[in-house]
Design a protein around this nucleic acid. Sequence first.
DNA 1: GCTTTTACATACTTATTTGTATGTAAAGTA
DNA 2: TACTTTACATACAAATAAGTATGTAAAAGC
Lengths: 113, 113
Amino acid sequence: MANFTYQGRLYYNPIELTMAFIGGTWKMPILLALRKGAVRYGDLRKTIPHINDKMLYSQLRDLEKKGMIQRKVYQTKPPRVDYMLTELGKKSIKLIDKINNFGEYLMEVEGIE
Amino acid sequence: MANFTYQGRLYYNPIELTMAFIGGTWKMPILLALRKGAVRYGDLRKTIPHINDKMLYSQLRDLEKKGMIQRKVYQTKPPRVDYMLTELGKKSIKLIDKINNFGEYLMEVEGIE
DNA sequence: GCTTTTACATACTTATTTGTATGTAAAGTA
DNA sequence: TACTTTACATACAAATAAGTATGTAAAAGC
């Protein structure tokens, strides 16, 4: 497995690429929040605990750039914007569920509740 | 799902806990390198591309502290130290494979080779 | 006419992660 | 006797990620 670049960054293996798509503190919570269908910006804010505007908007932009989510703007005042998973985004959900499940297993093993 | 702490850090959800165990640039490559059995320190260095001593040793310490790997020291000169997966570490391999597979899928989709 | 709402956007600071350079012990090798 | 090997360890710097504070437009509500 050789190195490769994607969107101007160098990667050493497929794992790093996966993490570019779903890694960091907020991407997986955002993707999970969209699993049932379109959600507006303000509702994402309310649904995802502890997230702030800068993180939400910058991660939404990045997920859009990577083709994981779609943005839909309604020309109303005040504005309304919906976000939804693309096909690629939907494919990531199964993996994110597994990552979440492993975390729950760890909580059990470590006696965390 | 409320917040919780583990080893002195605060977590908001199980995903973050999983990433504490297998996340970062080097933990998954290290764990995969141990999947076939015990490997010595020096061989890990040679097997994992681009890793440096500081990253290897600090991630090994962290993985050990989290119960993912075991360390076995042979009292020889120069020293020999083997690392191997614990049961918990073995359980992580299936998940890491899935993360790797998703990355390979992304490479296909994005036309990276 | 002043405040609120919505969905951002930017500047700046802080925290976390990663990388570089260098050092160590103690025996074996040239 | 000087150099190499092994498995670390530490100080420090650079890079990346995350968080804080503040601002914007334009219409609707009080």
